[in-house]
């Protein structure tokens, strides 16, 4: 049973940090499935009328939840559970088969351009033109959002400096940078466009503990300083517990639980033993979380 927006308990660690009255993101009964190769004829495939393939995978299966303004909302799930597909649906990069997604009341499909102005995304793979420098990549990204070159240069230096990037590295090709540094540039890129809904898809995966902490501080800043709402997928239980107001646990495309970290833990508490989020995760999904590094 999911916690509805009306029945959501108040935040445990930082009461009323988020706006109780305003919904930033609303996901209603969303389904997204992908066909295996070769389902239907060429014309059926391109016209969207291909028959349902036997190999069809339902990556997101009747998912519903709401995120309030300034909330940090976590999505936990094992590899292949549908987290990234869900983030892509929220990012306008995928069109749902059914259901509806709204961002501050705007439909992601019908009002796509307006929604795009409000959101940005940091994905697990810091995707950049690797031959270009961070500054050149940020110039490209900033201009796409209508910023002028001077403002982009000034803000980029400020944001990247705050994230601990050396000034010299800002002008060198990104291919020479560590993954942690690249991920910081990815965060700076998203920051630059001042999104009011930030979608973070495993932003700390593969980072060393120090970089991880720096990125986590940035996530908190996003809300505290920039007034943003954050949707965060992660493999890191400690990170989810430290950052998220509420957490949805997703398994095989379905949300199997949604509550505050304490609310989730209370579901599996027994014999006076204080359960961890990992205990909750295992109890609800029957699986141990395997990070990408462990899987590799």
């Amino acid at each position: 049973m999911l916690t509805t927006i009306e029945a959501m308990p108040r935040l445990r660690t930082a009461p009323a940090l988020y706006d109780e009255t305003r919904i930033a993101l609303d996901v209603r009964d969303v389904v997204k499935a992908f066909d295996g190769q070769g389902a239907g004829t060429w014309w059926q495939r391109v016209s969207g009328k291909a028959p349902v393939a036997a190999t069809q995978v339902r990556a997101v299966d009747h998912v519903s939840f709401s995120v309030r303004r300034r909330e940090i909302f976590g999505i936990l799930g094992p590899n292949g559970s549908g987290k990234s597909t869900l983030i892509r649906l929220l990012s306008t990069l995928l069109i749902p088969d059914s259901g509806r997604i709204t961002v501050f009341g705007l439909d992601v499909e019908r009002d796509e351009r307006q929604v795009k102005r409000m959101i940005n995304r940091v994905s697990v793979d810091a995707a950049f033109f690797k031959k270009l420098s961070p500054m050149e990549n940020l110039l490209y990204a900033g201009r796409l959002y209508g910023l002028d070159g001077r403002a982009i240069r000034e803000q980029s230096l400020e944001i990247l400096g705050r994230l601990g990037l050396e000034r010299k590295a800002i002008f060198e090709p990104m291919e020479d940078m560590s993954r942690g540094m690249q991920q910081k540039v990815a965060i700076a890129r998203a920051f630059l466009t001042a999104p009011i809904l930030m979608l973070l898809d495993e932003p700390t995966t593969g980072l060393d503990p120090r970089s991880k902490r720096e990125v986590q501080a940035v996530v908190q800043d996003l809300r505290a300083v920039h007034d943003a709402t954050v949707v965060l997928t992660t493999h890191d239980m400690d990170e989810a517990e430290a950052l998220c107001d509420r957490i949805a646990i997703i398994e095989s495309g379905k949300i199997v639980a949604l509550d505050t970290p304490d609310g989730l833990k209370s579901r599996v508490a027994r014999n006076g033993h204080e359960p961890t989020l990992e205990d909750v995760f295992m109890a609800l999904t029957g699986k141990r979380l395997v990070t990408e590094e462990q899987a590799a």
């Binding site: 990012s91 990069l93 351009r113 795009k116 950049f128 690797k130 959002y145 209508g146």
Partner: peptide, 14 residues
């Protein structure tokens, strides 16, 4: 090939 296609397509650009 560069891996940036999703970021370009996500931008609010006609």
């Amino acid at each position: 090939w560069e891996g940036t296609i999703e970021y370009t397509m996500m931008a609010p650009v006609h």
